[in-house]
């Protein structure tokens, strides 16, 4: 038997679907030919590997619930608008924990945002919320005397990019007691 013929019969040999005389010929060839033997060994191991993936079982509760859902949609005739009846996810404790964590994080973000907004209401608008000159009808000297810090549009952009949390208008600025430092943005030419 030549290699090409042996290789063409390899699948059937592996699946025990050859007549015994042909199987004997293939076996004899595999004993003599290292290349075909290697191909056969790989196929055999692949089949073993795939077989190992069997028997996935989501558990008895899942089967009971699934039966009930199917019966509700067929025998009991309550076909939902959405074809596939989604389950409640209460049976997944890991999912519930993640959901709770996300909710907690969202609550914290809202709380901190509310605090910052509240603090900002007590002083001038800052560079993170407005562009261009923000105070009108007052001179630069008056603004400086009133405790405002004048920056250019260019500086505002840099501030917005890199110092959002570190500069006076940012969160750390507030925490660091720098809330008194107020910022006015002015155009480059002023």
């Amino acid at each position: 038997m030549i290699c090409q013929h042996a290789l063409s019969l390899l699948d059937d040999f592996l699946d025990n679907e050859l007549a015994s005389s042909t199987a004997a010929e293939v076996k004899s060839h595999l004993d003599d030919c290292t290349t075909c033997r290697q191909a056969y060994d790989e196929s055999r191991r692949l089949k073993e590997l795939l077989k190992q993936t069997r028997n996935r079982d989501p558990g008895q509760d899942y089967w009971l619930e699934t039966s009930q859902l199917i019966l509700a949609r067929t025998v009991q005739g309550s076909e939902p608008e959405q074809p596939y009846a989604m389950r409640e996810t209460t049976s997944d404790p890991k999912g519930s924990f993640v959901q709770a964590l996300v909710s907690l994080a969202a609550s914290l973000v809202i709380l901190v945002s509310a605090l910052i907004v509240g603090m900002n209401q007590n002083h001038a608008p800052d560079a993170t919320t407005r562009g261009g000159p923000v105070l009108f009808g007052s001179s630069v000297d008056q603004q400086l005397n009133a405790g405002y810090y004048i920056i250019t549009e260019d500086e505002r952009q840099r501030l917005a990019k890199g110092m959002l949390l570190l500069g006076p208008p940012g969160l750390l600025g507030h925490i660091g007691g720098l809330t008194q430092l107020r910022i006015v943005i002015t155009a480059e030419h002023q």
């Binding site: 993936t53 996935r56 079982d57 699934t66 039966s67 859902l69 199917i70 596939y84 389950r87």
Partner: peptide, 28 residues
Amino acid sequence: FQKKIYTLAHHFLGNHLDADEVVQETFV
């Protein structure tokens, strides 16, 4: 038969949710 359909669908689709959908829809 539901286990049989589930395992087949799971191996084919690779995840529980899709396998679950296949089981339900098949019997319906």
